[in-house]
Amino acid sequence: MSEVVGSKVMLGDVEVSRVVEVERFALPPRAIVPEAPEEVWRDNADWLAPDHWDPDTGDAVAVIQTWVLRSEGGTVLVDTGIGNGRERPGVPAFEHLDTDYLDRLAAAGVRPEDVDIVVNTHLHGDHIGWNTRDVGGEWVPTFPNATYLIPAADHAYFGPERGDAVRADHRAGFADSVAPVVRSGQAVLWEGTHRIDSHLTLESAPGHTPGSSVLRLHSGTDRAVFVGDLLHVPVQILEPCCSSGFCEDPGAAAESRVRVLGRAADEGELVLPAHFGGSGAVEVRRAGSKFAVSGWV
């Protein structure tokens, strides 16, 4: 059974904590999950508010964060947020941030040189930003000793070969947060599945992006799945066919979400999305053809 210790949870032999970069990111629900019925927010207000929904403004509420795993003596970061000082054309909320993310990481006991693995679940700008930092006007890897695990399908989809077919902010993110770690020789482009250690395995879950992935944890009797942006808000647990407005292929994203949630419900996997506020980790159960929240950790 998982054991909560302070702001950390032990899942078998793996310690899980998180570092929050942006504590409150709010958007109208229609901007996040356009097809979700308005009433599903109101009907579940008693538990959605205030961590996931602001009843005063009607906005959906999310966070930008990194999951920190310590497994078999190694330190693994799952997604690296937006980053400081970025140019993100058309996305003003992501531009020119100046946060104390690295100080927060240090407060969690993690120095950049301590990181062994960086997992980018996909290559949207709010998952790759702290891959690099600006040193003397040059973007260099933030984590000098880390291997960066990057989905090969996303590397191809967002890379320069597709030119103007890629949105301007995605082109900028690739240039400052992905290309430098590839040039450094620290990147591993993977596809299908990728085993990190005896407890952690990456699996493809396409749709949100072509290379979107989930990270599965299995240690002792505990199981968990870090789902990236398969879930942006808890309403998508209740309405799993409703993909986000940021999905490259909403239909494929819905198929991946139903598959991953089904396994989580059937096998007792704790679900840890990239953007949930509150405790951030949720247990799910089947509810007919959909799913429901059975508890929070």
Rank of each mutant, 00 (worst) to 15 (best):
V118G: 01
C241G: 14
F276P: 05
W41G: 02
V227Q: 06
A274M: 10
G262D: 08
A49K: 15
L149M: 00
G262V: 08
R30F: 12
V227T: 15
R162T: 01
T80G: 02
R263Q: 06
R167T: 09
R257Y: 03
D100Y: 12
N84W: 10
P250I: 09
P28Q: 02
T80V: 10
P151S: 05
R167M: 05
W130P: 02
E283I: 01
H208I: 06
V118W: 02
D134M: 13
L272W: 02
L123A: 04
A152C: 05
D126Q: 08
V297A: 04
T75P: 07
I128N: 03
F158H: 09
T75K: 01
A254L: 11
A254Q: 10
K290R: 15
Y148M: 07
D154V: 11
T147W: 07
P112C: 01
L27H: 12
V293D: 00
R263T: 04
G251W: 13
H170P: 00
G163Q: 08
T80C: 09
V182F: 11
V19D: 00
V115T: 12
A254E: 12
A49R: 14
R104L: 00
W41S: 00
I150S: 05
S243K: 07
G109D: 05
V118R: 08
H127N: 14
V297P: 03
Y148W: 11
D169Y: 15
D79W: 02
S294W: 03
G159S: 04
S256M: 08
A265N: 03
V297H: 13
L270P: 05
G83E: 05
L231A: 07
E138S: 10
G125F: 13
D13I: 05
H170M: 04
P92I: 04
A254I: 13
S17W: 13
A26R: 13
A274T: 06
L230W: 02
G192P: 08
P180R: 08
F25G: 00
R162H: 09
A168V: 05
A254G: 11
A179I: 06
G278E: 09
T147N: 01
V225A: 08
E113Y: 12
L77A: 03
V40W: 09
R88L: 12
E269W: 11
Y157I: 03
V225C: 03
V293G: 05
A31D: 14
V271Y: 10
I237C: 05
A93D: 10
P92M: 08
G207D: 01
R167F: 03
P160S: 06
V9W: 15
V135M: 07
A156R: 14
E248H: 11
W47R: 04
S177C: 15
S184T: 02
G109W: 08
A281K: 15
W296M: 07
T221M: 04
G295S: 06
F246S: 09
D176W: 09
L272F: 00
V227E: 06
M1I: 07
V16K: 01
L238N: 06
T121A: 14
H208Y: 14
N131D: 04
D13C: 09
N120G: 07
S7R: 15
